[in-house]
Write a protein that binds this DNA or RNA. Structure first.
Length: 170
DNA sequence: CCCTGATTCGC
DNA sequence: GCGAATCAGG
């Protein structure tokens, strides 16, 4: 689809994803063609804002008056040349916002990043089988220039210690 | 710095 | 109605 607007389907998806507890930016990434601001704006217009908060602040700030009117940004194409990427996030097995609190200190929580949500600062450690629908990336924050989060960087860049086997004087 | 949602208001 | 810019907070 080339035309991007809030069609019935997209709105339904928005509702579902929002109800799932995904953040606005994640929803925007999954829907494509919209920013998180657009998602938030739509969420508010639909009246389903504040899923955990009952009410917002009644205090409206004065804000600054806007006048510059920039020539507008080119807006990202959002069209990645990926082939198969059609996960219906609505039925993903994990990612439960409030299911149960299992005391698992060993298990690290992932952010379940997709291709669309990966940035320079997201951990690109693959989780699961890339050919499966439930595949995702770790997605937690990573240092600039490092493709993995602190946890996975340690695994990926294990020190080449104990290489005394065949060390040669270079 | 990264991120989150909330709000305003020009379009 | 839409969403960028902005605000306020974590």
């Amino acid at each position: 689809m080339t035309e991007l607007s809030w069609t019935e389907e997209r709105v339904e998806r928005l509702k579902a994803l929002w109800a799932e507890g995904l953040s606005a930016s994640q929803i925007a990434g999954e829907l494509g063609g919209v920013t998180r601001n657009a998602v938030i704006g739509k969420v508010h217009r639909l009246g389903l804002s504040g899923r955990s908060k009952p009410q917002a602040q009644p205090t409206a700030r004065p804000r600054k008056t806007r006048e510059p009117t920039h020539p507008m940004r080119p807006s990202a194409p959002a069209s990645v040349g990926n082939t198969a990427l059609k996960a219906d996030v609505e039925e993903l097995p994990a990612a439960e916002p409030e299911a149960k609190t299992s005391p698992r200190p060993e298990v690290i929580d992932f952010e379940r990043a997709t291709i669309l949500t990966l940035t320079e600062h997201t951990c690109k450690w693959p989780i699961g089988d890339p050919s499966r629908e439930d595949f995702f990336f770790c997605g937690r924050h990573s240092e600039a220039g490092i493709p993995y989060c602190a946890h996975h960087a340690r695994i990926a860049y294990q020190p080449a210690h104990d290489r005394r086997r065949d060390r040669k004087a270079s």
